[in-house]
Design a binder for these strands. Structure first.
Lengths: 354, 354
DNA sequence: GTGAAAGCGCTAACAG
DNA sequence: CTGTTAGCGCTTTCAC
């Protein structure tokens, strides 16, 4: 390949206007100390010549790289892609992240990293050295991975921790798992349900615990027991199947179930069908995540939407703010989650004893 | 933010081994003229010190940027993301593209570009100037956009054109739309169908025509007429609905329909249901694209899979090869598409007149 | 084979 | 407010 050089550089612009490189640089970076009139002339020349600064050169001279890295778990992400079940986590990340980045002239690069590996740190440092990103977005389970967090803190790179409450390093930003679970549970209670089961997610993810907490809070405030109504899964279909089976085999089975992932909810739906129960008439179901497939079931499933796009968008904002040296929120940033009502919830049946 | 500098540079490595920067550079780039023994020592130091070359610096000094841009249509992509219908085009791109890139030390950056816009060229040149990518992957409908193609050709950047047959510029690479349509049609004919309808996609996309061609070829080779059996849609659900309605209202309605998008197939399924027809018993259906939702319908839909991941992976390979100056394929590269058999095809009913 | 010098496009630090 | 100087980390070109 022919060696490609920048078509029009800062030098061309400077020459065109008859000022120094520095002045052009100041205009590009919107720095003070340029007369408005001059600034305008420079801006005009930039537009006219179609000048766009080279990110590489900007980075080289010690300024920003205008690159933000979004770190996802390699195994889970690739598995999702291959499975083609419609999981759109990455798409929603891009929707929220890319667009916000674009507003500020940044780009987002998706990077896959193994959480469970002795060379996480090497991988991470490699990516940082190669790309010199201005900030990094951590997604679960990376967000609470001590190795990653420590490494990033040492590197002094602004980073957001999606799905983390930790306040020691980086910028925690939460999709309101607990609040969402509270709302979902209250929603069911308002419909007359008293026995509400919970199929929890993997304990590897902190959010699993928060969802349980929310359910417990809402049950407690209504004076309802939760004793035998909690079953742990690991987000997978198989685990949801087991949990649903156990729940429905209870002497006093639940009339509603909240499951901590779409796959587990799908499993519960199928278990109910096989048990001859009609959803929502005999059993109400609320899911967590609200991936696209929730619209393709019969009935469509009511679900708590994970506001991924909004969260990543906010994370980008925070990183750019941090990068500018602006003051950051003291507390954990919380993005509200909403309940998307579809057809899997109805009033509780009249029960004999309640 | 504190000004971050590379932790360990080529200089550190050179000093550590006691050689010049040049030698280290040669080792990094796997260039000749380094004694094996020396090369080994340098390599060892690189590993030990955890050295990773800065892409920015590499780019600056006129070499590769190790960046490949994947250009998608802005409106369609954002619409898909927002609709959350499970369309996983971007995911499959990343699956094929990112992983292949990673093998060669490249990164892939997704970029959204408006096709219909007078400033496509400005947008494109801006991205190129900013990122200095080593190659660009065009997806439909960009692949046949003359403005974009001309612009890229001028820039001398290697680029792949997914879904294009054009041999003038860039590297065309095709998912075998016509062949897939032939196969799908033959598949139906083998099951006894004689009246096979086709719901075509938007004429803005060349692949719509190729799919029609394939259907016609297979019909012709079986001596079957196609006269009133073709109806054009534009990939959307609404257009599929209209086409299906028209097809089923025919004096001699088709016993099978091939539709050029999943949305249109979904529409056909629904139209059939409303008309009191059972799929596949009364009407067989084959879809194009095979997005995740095809598994969530009742019955599951037989579909032609678009080998997006394989295609993008190949595109990356070709770009990297081009970049190295290797010779490129003369002809259009064709990636075969496969028919995923599910539950929407059965033998043709016995027809009164056939 | 290996090394030294020059420069990529830009910004930081300092002058004026 | 504006310009000059130096240098980021690397590869190119050309000496040795």
């Amino acid at each position: 390949m022919a060696r490609r050089r920048q078509a029009v550089t800062i030098r061309h612009v400077a020459a065109d206007v008859g000022v120094s490189l520095q002045t052009v640089s100041r205009v590009i970076n919107n720095e003070p100390n340029v007369r408005p009139e001059l600034k305008e002339r420079v801006q005009e020349a930039i537009t006219r010549l179609g000048y766009v600064p080279s990110i590489a050169a900007q980075r080289m001279s010690g300024s920003r790289s205008y690159l933000i890295l979004a770190l996802n778990d390699r195994d889970r992400t690739i598995a999702d892609w291959r499975a083609r079940q419609g999981t759109d986590w990455v798409d929603q990340m891009l929707l929220g992240g890319m667009l916000k980045c674009a507003e500020h002239g940044y780009r987002m690069i998706v990077e896959l990293v193994d959480t469970h590996s002795d060379h996480v740190e090497r991988e991470l440092l490699g990516a940082i050295a190669a790309l010199q990103p201005d900030g990094i977005i951590l997604t679960p389970p990376h967000s609470d991975n001590p190795q990653i967090v420590r490494c990033l803190a040492q590197q002094q790179i602004p980073f957001a921790r999606i799905g983390s409450k930790a306040q020691d390093e980086g910028m925690p930003i939460l999709m309101d798992d607990e609040g969402a679970a509270v709302n979902a549970t209250r929603h069911l209670i308002a419909r007359g349900h008293r026995r509400i089961g919970m199929i929890a997610g993997s304990a590897d993810y902190n959010l699993s615990g928060w969802r349980i907490d929310g359910w417990k809070v809402a049950m407690a405030e209504a004076g309802l027991p939760t004793d035998d109504l909690l079953h742990a899964g690991d987000f997978t279909y198989a685990s949801g199947e087991r949990a649903a089976l156990a729940l429905l085999a209870l002497p006093a089975p639940p009339t509603a179930i909240i499951a901590s992932s779409d796959q587990m909810t799908l499993a519960a739906l199928e278990v109910a069908r096989k048990a001859g129960l009609t959803v929502p008439h005999d059993l109400s179901l609320i899911s967590f995540d609200n991936t696209p497939m929730m619209q393709f079931t019969q009935p469509q499933l009511t679900a708590i939407d994970q506001p991924i796009a909004a969260t990543v968008s906010k994370a980008v904002e925070m990183i750019i703010a941090a990068q500018k040296g602006e003051s950051l929120p003291e507390a954990v940033t919380v993005i509200p989650a909403t309940l998307v009502e579809r057809g899997s919830v109805s009033d509780a049946r009249q029960t004999v004893s309640a």
